Simulated scan of single mutants.
Amino acid sequence: MSRALPLWRSLLYVPVTSQRFVEKAAARGADVIKLDLEDSIPPTEKPSARAAVRDAARLISDAGTEVLVRINRPWRMASLDLEAAVWPEVSGLCLPKLESADHLGFLDEIVEELERERGMTVGSIRFMGLIETPRGLNNVREIAKASPRLMGLSLGQEDYSAALGMPSLGPEDLLEDMRLVQRAAREADILPLGYAGSIAEITDMDAFRGSAKRARALGMEGGSCVHPAQVPILNEVFSPRPDEIEMAEAMVAAYDDAMAKGLGAVSFRGKMIDVPVVERARRVLVLHDRIAARS
């Protein structure tokens, strides 16, 4: 990854109108709290939710946890949400149902106007995008490259499966679609996020862990959740294991030593290693250091 991307292993949704949840949000251990203005807020409560955003974001960000705000999709609602959410206390926006590069570009333009009006650094508000419709998936490569604000992209499992008319969502039903989003994210040098199982799985934590582990094995970097019990699972799964760290440290040391001696071939624990393998090990160590710094 050539640009500095955020550490987003776990992104916990919190309804912004629930003061009790907001007050406890920063203590949940999530890398990011996503204050929700969308699905968890009934239409009649949208105005009060918008009014609560800045104070909620300040409370959470002052406690040292990053804040994103998930806005609504219809343009008239989205415009009101942006007015309520673009503040220094908010580090980014979660954008649902992205369907085209133009869609993302319009949002980017509005956010820049608000940043300038409010004396904020232009570009300080980052984006996380959700692909939740067939049209969005068909345009995912263009969407992924449409704005330098876009830091990560995820398949929105529940909305996307509903849009496809799927009666239920199994742990592997959306693997193919998730991988399309992942490849688009990697091509655009942003974070691939998410897992193929249901985000609403809050009773069978073994099943939830399985979905997260499959996603990590495929190269995903983190995922969203709706319950605090899911947070430690995501943090654990999307962090390097002790054995991975030990292996990476030893491999990098062996490779660097061989290069310093001018050796053209490097053997490590019975296998030949080359640049791509070592770079993967270096990424493990960088991630480990970033997690340690945050802790």
Rank of each mutant, 00 (worst) to 15 (best):
V86R: 10
L287E: 01
S211G: 15
D204N: 15
E99G: 08
L169W: 02
A207I: 11
K24I: 02
R283L: 11
G64D: 06
R9G: 13
H227V: 10
V277G: 00
V14I: 14
G262E: 05
V277E: 10
H103F: 15
D159T: 04
V252D: 03
E66R: 13
R179K: 14
K97R: 07
P171M: 05
I33C: 12
T17W: 03
S154F: 00
I33A: 10
G105D: 07
S267C: 11
A85Y: 05
V90W: 06
W8Q: 00
F21V: 00
E187I: 04
R241W: 04
K271E: 15
E89I: 05
S61P: 00
A200I: 01
A188K: 08
D159K: 04
I110F: 06
P88E: 07
A30P: 07
S10D: 05
R50Q: 10
L193W: 07
G262C: 10
T133Q: 12
R76F: 09
A185T: 05
S10W: 13
I41S: 01
R216S: 12
A215M: 07
L5N: 04
K24V: 02
S124K: 06
W87Y: 15
Y255K: 04
T203S: 11
I71W: 05
A212L: 14
S161A: 15
P88F: 02
G264S: 09
L98R: 01
E187S: 15
V53K: 04
E115P: 11
I233G: 10
W75V: 14
A101L: 11
L93N: 05
A253N: 09
D39E: 14
R50W: 08
M151L: 06
S2K: 11
D39K: 04
R209P: 01
F106W: 13
A217D: 15
H288Q: 14
R183T: 07
P148H: 09
F208Y: 14
A101H: 09
A184I: 04
F21Y: 08
G197N: 03
L104S: 00
L164N: 10
S91G: 14
A25V: 05
E279R: 15
I202W: 00
A146N: 07
R118A: 02
A26D: 03
A281F: 05
E38N: 04
L137S: 12
L155N: 12
L35C: 10
D55K: 14
L287G: 03
A30N: 04
L104K: 12
I60Q: 02
V226N: 00
E246T: 12
E176F: 14
A84T: 05
A229S: 15
I110A: 13
V122H: 01
G219T: 12
A265R: 14
S40H: 03
V266M: 07
A184D: 06
V181R: 03
A215D: 13
S168C: 09
S40M: 08
